[in-house]
Simulated scan of single mutants.
Amino acid sequence: MTALGFLYPGYSAEDDYPRIEQLLGSDIRVDLVHTDIGEDAHRVDALLRMGAPEPLAAGVEALRLAGVEAVVWACTSGSFVYGWEGAHGQVRTLALAAGMPASSTSFAFVHAAAEIGVRRVAVGATYPDDVARLFGDFLRAGGVEVTGVRPSGIITAAEVGSWGEDEVFALARAADRPDAEAVLLPDTALHTAAHVAGLEKELGKPVLTANQVTVWEGLRLTGRRVNAPALGALFTREPVVQA
C-alpha cells in the first residue's frame, strides 16, 4: 500500500480525490486534509496568504499521523503566485515541516508535461486575467512553451466548484490552439476527474487537469507508476526518455 497525502484548500472539488483513488484501481491510498482557505478570492494578495507556511503546516501533522509517504500542496494558484523561485521555497518549507518529499500542483503540471513529452501547451484558466497570466509565466520558467492562456474571470473557488461537464468542456475547447500539443486546466477547484478521457477524445490531444496531475505528482514522489486509462494520457503513456 502506497499512501499519498494532499493539502487541499477549502471545499470545492475535493471529491475528485476519492474518485481518482477508485480509478487508479491499485494499492494506492489517497489521504486529503483541508487547509484554511482564508478569503475565497482568486486575487494575488489572498492567494499569497492562502499558500503561506502557517496554513499549510497546520494540516501536515494529520497527514504524518496517517502514515503518508509524500505530501502535495493541492493548489495551483496558491503556489504559482509565488513565482518559480518562491514556489520552490514553499515546497522546501513544506518538505521540512512534513519530514518527507513534497511538491505542489504547479510543479506537477511542469513535470507532467515533461512526462508525456509535450513542449507547447494551451491553458484554459478559470482565473481572472492577471492571475491566469502568472500561471503562464510559471510554465515558461519551467521550460514549457505557452501558445495561449484563456482566462475566465472567476473570482471564487466556490463558483468554480459549481461548474459541471458542459462548462469544463467549453473551457477546454475555448482554450485549445492548433499549435498546442496539450491543453492544461489549472484549477484544483474544478471537477475534472470524470472528464479527462472524454476531453482528450474530443480535442484529440492530451489534457492535463489540476487534480489529475496533483495525484500523479504524489505517485511520482513515491516512485510509483499506475496504468489508469480513464485518467488520460498521463496515466497510460510510457515516460519519455530524453536524449
Rank of each mutant, 00 (worst) to 15 (best):
I28C: 05
G99Y: 13
R237K: 13
G198S: 05
V60I: 13
V110P: 02
E14I: 15
W84P: 01
H88L: 12
L184T: 00
S12H: 09
R119C: 06
A98M: 06
F235C: 11
A180F: 03
D187M: 00
T156E: 06
V91E: 05
M1L: 08
G136L: 10
T76I: 07
A87I: 04
G204E: 08
Y17A: 04
D15H: 12
T209P: 01
I155S: 03
L221M: 11
Y11L: 14
L134K: 15
K205W: 07
N211W: 15
H191F: 07
A58S: 12
P18G: 08
A182E: 01
G218M: 13
A174N: 00
L32H: 00
T76V: 10
V168N: 02
L7R: 05
H42G: 00
A158K: 07
L7M: 06
V81L: 05
E21T: 06
R220H: 11
F235W: 15
V196Q: 14
A174V: 00
T222S: 14
V196D: 07
F135S: 06
V121S: 06
G204S: 13
G51M: 14
E217Y: 09
E145D: 14
W216Y: 15
A141K: 05
V196C: 10
L185E: 02
T192L: 09
E54N: 05
A197V: 03
E200H: 11
T214A: 09
Q22F: 09
G161A: 07
R177T: 02
E85I: 08
L47M: 11
R140V: 09
G38S: 04
E159C: 02
T188N: 15
A97E: 07
P53D: 07
W216Q: 08
V241E: 10
P55H: 13
G51R: 12
G148P: 06
L65W: 03
A70H: 07
Y11P: 00
L203H: 10
R237T: 10
R92A: 08
Y82S: 07
D15I: 08
T147A: 15
F135Q: 03
R150C: 09
A112W: 13
Y127S: 03
L208F: 13
L234G: 08
A194I: 02
A197E: 14
G5R: 08
G86M: 12
V110E: 02
P229L: 15
A158N: 01
G86S: 12
L199C: 09
L32G: 00
A74C: 01
L134P: 00
H88I: 03
G83E: 06
Y8P: 01
A193S: 15
R120W: 13
L32M: 07
E115P: 00
R225D: 11
V213D: 05
D176T: 04
F138L: 12
A243L: 10
E165N: 00
T214Q: 11
T147C: 14
L234M: 12
P239D: 05
D16P: 06
D16N: 12
R133Y: 03
V118Y: 13
M100P: 07
G232I: 12
Y82R: 15
R133G: 00
V144E: 03
A228Y: 15
E115D: 14
G143E: 04
R92E: 12
I37V: 13
A41R: 14
V30R: 01
T76F: 11
L190M: 08
G161D: 04
F138N: 04
Y8E: 02
L184K: 03
P178I: 05
G143V: 10
L65Y: 01
I20V: 15
V144L: 14
